[in-house]
Design a protein around this nucleic acid. Structure first.
Length: 829
RNA sequence: GCCGGGAUGGCGGAAUUUGGUAGACGCAAGGGACUUAAAAUCCCUCGUUCUUUAACGGACAUGCCGGUUCAAUUCCGGCUCCCGGCACCA
């Protein structure tokens, strides 16, 4: 083998390209849609990226060689802040910067030899793509799923834009390079009404049989369904103030009410009273605090008395109303009933502001004394001080009190969710313009569909964020005419969250060139749902909820048959270097370009697959390369000495003699085929590769290199190895098979099931569950024979001497366990 | 705090689906062969420990403590530690 791996890899990549073997079949018979989470184009790729694409590549090649029509293509999540920041720093247009990065990344991916159909490549900052974001926005608007409202929103002071809830991590900006503390601002913004689909998104999780359980649990928690009661309290002036509670059994213990500082009522409740100024100052102070300071559980709760009282509908008690920073405006009704005796938060607040505490539930054995309580009692117990409910178990009490409230019209059963509507406006330049027009006469008017796309203007020089969209300062973009009345009007200056792009990009993959619609349902429904989706776990509660939401809306619009986008989800672990996740933006990693130069693509693929099972994290070390690199060299050496055979005549199989080395080899071959297929189906590629290494050891140890079984094994080995080390496998295939077509146009052989087990096996013998000996028997030996052989074994005899055999357990083909006891006359000694 | 996941040799990891020979495969390490030498390659050893001339011998060993079982890394109960998610959600 005179050619080095660079030449081989280049040649094979050209061969696949020219033959177009990974081009999408427009009329698939056995479809298989494999999707990698598309990346932000960050330029230089590192080993962490290659792990994601290598997994997808291996799935693709494995499915292809098993006879599927695969769809596996690629795209770029090309809008977003880094391009804009680069523009500010380097004075280069975001588009130029983005395109340049795409070229670099693409070059690396091609050198890695990932099996993509590049003809279907999709880039979200192309008008051909983003016009359909605008199309969907208008369609959502028509269905009441896109709306504008004013409220307090997450504001990143560094990025100078709002963020969705999913983009706030620990009260800080989600972007790893930003991380600023998030503030609250009152703004009018566009939202997608994902809350119309909350229950569907929750119920749909049950259909996702092949999603990792942790991801489903995370989504379930994120959605946060909780059942309770909305109880109507009244202020003394008669204003009804509903509150949500899951603990109606504690209603008799309410000693104060609390209102969120950003709740609507908070602004007006003290108006015209002596409390007005104090309350106003408090609200201003509370909202100025960064989210993290206000929301942390460790932070001391604060509040202010409003001067108003509410009436408890159950016992008509008069209770003070506070404004308190621990109450969230966005959950329930923005107001709570507080039961300090049985809620820890209320307990702390009550202690601080000297509000009385009332016990309404006692533990079954004792009675609580308020003076002695150092924390709220939140466990199960017996109701007390609760009128007609006294003596009742409080769990039953929840139902009974609720029934009572409903029967008196004082409240009703309600379900609340933690999930909020999806805020999609961004005050930034590099994104999809929101296709809405603000007309002084007609109000908000969508851009007519025929006028799409609303192009993002390119002649911008100043990207520095000023707290409002860059586009607001571009008159030739902003000024337009109203499509309804024809009068002067203005375009919406905001752009869309890039999670809109990633919510449907995979659908575009199925019909990438369509210029009449985002995709033709006839084509797309042939491929949907996605069969396997490979990506990082960090998208569990963001993207992976959004794309389910989009799928359901498009299903309701009649564009998609499926209501869930994806059958199997694989979340792979991060690749770290020195304990820190590899990152392009932080320039921390092992760079793919350098790696490929030194080791080549096949070694890169094998190394990341062999290092650990896909879901685990990898802490990268250079030693991970050595083993697989040796493995490939040893493989090559095999074929230098012997020419493989691709067929094994029946006559040869028939002549294989029992217990011969060639019989053993034939059995090992078929065991390997089975193991590689089984492991690959559940993407346990590390053990599939280990099986190939074991078989290589068998081949190396086999003496007669001209034996037909040996030569046939070499032929099979090429195909088994192909999904993991595609370049070298293709090279060997083309060199020795005499065929013109690719190894990936072959089919993987199925194991010869008659040759999966050896004719003789070793049975371990245990005494009292401890391994004491082993015997070799032929597979058809009867249980009786095996037991007597076991008892006749020399070592076994020594162990059972002088003991009584109580029982002999035989697990077919697995083991024998002899249970003994001391003879009667020995027991007393 | 709540919800997940995990803990196996010097290291990455197998075996956990269905309880049945714990440590596959690889790395590192040690020894040897080849070589003027090195690299590469090949062969052998490789959980701990005890007895021993020697082990194809015994004991111990899958985070810790208990339980179920003929048999537990696997099942059950109780802990410890690590990682991830959520974090005043009423």
């Amino acid at each position: 083998m005179s050619e080095n791996f660079h030449d081989i890899e280049k040649k094979m990549q050209r061969f696949w390209d020219e033959r177009g073997i990974f081009k999408t079949n427009p009329n698939p018979k056995k479809k298989y849609f494999i999707l990698d989470m598309f990346p932000y184009p960050s330029g230089d790729l590192h080993i962490g990226h290659s792990r994601n694409y290598t997994i997808g590549d291996t799935v693709t090649r494995f499915k292809k060689i098993r006879g599927f029509d695969v769809l596996h293509t690629f795209g770029w999540d090309a809008f977003g802040l880094p391009a804009e920041n680069a523009a500010i720093i380097h004075k280069i247009h975001p588009e130029a910067w983005t395109k340049e990065n795409i070229e670099i990344s693409k070059k690396h991916l091609k050198e890695l030899g990932i099996a993509f159909d590049w003809d279907a490549e999709t880039t979200t900052c192309d008008p051909d793509f983003y016009r359909w974001n605008q199309y969907f926005f208008i369609k959502f608007y028509e269905r009441g799923l896109a709306y504008r409202k004013e409220s307090y929103v997450n504001w990143c002071p560094n990025c100078q834009t709002v963020l969705a809830n999913e983009q706030v991590k620990d009260g800080h900006c989600w972007r790893s390079t930003c991380g600023s503390a998030i503030e609250k601002r009152k703004l009018t913004q566009w939202y997608f009404k994902i809350t119309d689909y909350t229950q569907q998104l929750l119920d749909g999780l049950k259909e996702l049989k092949h999603w990792p359980e942790p991801v489903k649990i995370m989504q379930e928690n994120w959605i946060g369904r909780s059942e309770g009661v909305e109880v109507n309290f009244k202020l003394e002036d008669g204003t009804v103030v509903p509150i949500f509670t899951t603990r109606p059994d504690t209603l008799f213990g309410v000693t104060f009410m609390a209102l969120a500082p950003d709740a609507v009522l908070a602004e007006t409740i003290s108006k015209g009273t002596e409390y007005e100024k104090k309350v106003k100052d408090y609200i201003a102070e509370a909202l100025k605090k960064p989210e993290i300071e206000r929301a942390g559980t460790e932070t001391e709760k604060t509040g202010v008395f409003t001067g108003k009282y509410a009436i408890n509908p159950l016992n008509n008690e008069r209770i003070p109303v506070y404004i308190a920073d621990f109450v969230l405006a966005s959950y329930g009704t923005g107001m709570i009933m507080a039961v300090p005796g049985h809620d820890q938060r209320d307990f702390e607040f009550a202690n601080k502001y000297k509000i009385p505490i009332k016990v309404v539930i006692n533990p079954s054995e004792t009675k609580l004394k308020v003076d002695l309580m150092d924390k709220a009692y939140i466990d199960e117990g017996v109701m007390t001080n609760s009128g007609q409910f006294d003596g009742m178990n409080n769990i039953q009490g929840i139902e009974k009190v609720t029934d009572y409230l409903e029967s008196k019209g004082l409240g009703k059963r309600t379900v609340n969710y933690r999930l909020k509507d999806w805020l999609i406006s961004r005050q930034r330049y590099w994104g999809t313009p929101i296709p809405m027009i603000h007309c002084p006469k007609c109000g908000i008017v969508p851009v007519p569909l025929d006028d799409l796309p609303v192009l993002l203007p390119k002649n911008i020089t100043d990207y520095v964020p000023k707290g409002k969209s860059v586009l607001a300062g571009v008159p030739e973009f902003i000024n337009t005419t109203c499509p309804v009345c024809g009068g002067k009007a203005e375009r919406d200056p905001d752009t869309m969250d890039t999670f809109v792009d990633s919510s449907w990009y995979f659908l575009r993959y199925t019909d990438p060139k369509n210029d009449k619609m985002p995709f033709d349902p006839k084509r797309t429904n042939q491929w949907m749902p996605i069969d396997e989706y490979v990506g990082g776990i960090e998208h569990a509660t963001g993207h992976l909820i959004y794309f389910r939401f989009f799928t359901r809306v498009l299903h309701d619009m009649g564009m998609l048959k499926c209501s869930e986008p994806c059958d199997i989800l694989h979340t792979h672990g991060m690749v770290k270097l020195d304990g820190i996740t590899m990152s392009s933006s932080k320039r921390h990693g092992v760079w793919l370009g350098d790696f490929l130069k030194e080791h080549g693509a096949d070694v890169c693929k094998l190394a990341v697959l062999f290092a650990a099972p896909p879901e685990k994290e990898i802490d990268w070390t250079n030693e991970m390369v050595t083993g697989v690199s040796r493995f490939l060299s040893r493989i090559k050496a095999l074929y230098e000495n012997t020419t493989p055979n691709f067929d094994l005549p029946k006559s040869v199989i028939a002549n294989i003699t029992m217990q011969s080395p060639e019989q053993n080899l034939y059995i090992r071959l078929n065991q390997t085929i089975k193991k590689v297929i089984d492991d690959s189906e559940r993407i346990q590629y590390n053990t599939a590769i280990a099986a190939l290494m074991e078989f290589l050891n068998d081949l190396t140890g086999f003496e007669n290199k001209e034996n037909p079984v040996y030569k046939y094994s070499l032929g099979i080995m090429i195909r088994l190895l192909a999904p993991f080390a595609p370049h070298i496998s293709e090279y060997l295939w083309l060199k020795y098979s005499g065929k013109e077509h690719s190894v990936f146009e072959e089919t993987l052989p199925e194991p010869d099931t008659s040759a999966l087990s050896f004719t003789s096996i070793t049975i371990p013998i245990q005494i009292q569950g401890k391994l004491r000996s082993k015997i070799d028997v032929s597979v058809d030996t009867s249980e009786q024979d095996i037991k007597s052989q076991a008892l006749a074994d020399e070592k076994v005899k020594k162990w059972i001497e002088g003991k009584k055999i109580k029982q002999i357990i035989y697990v077919p083909n697995r083991l024998v366990n002899i249970v003994t006891s001391l003879p009667e006359n020995n027991i007393d000694k």
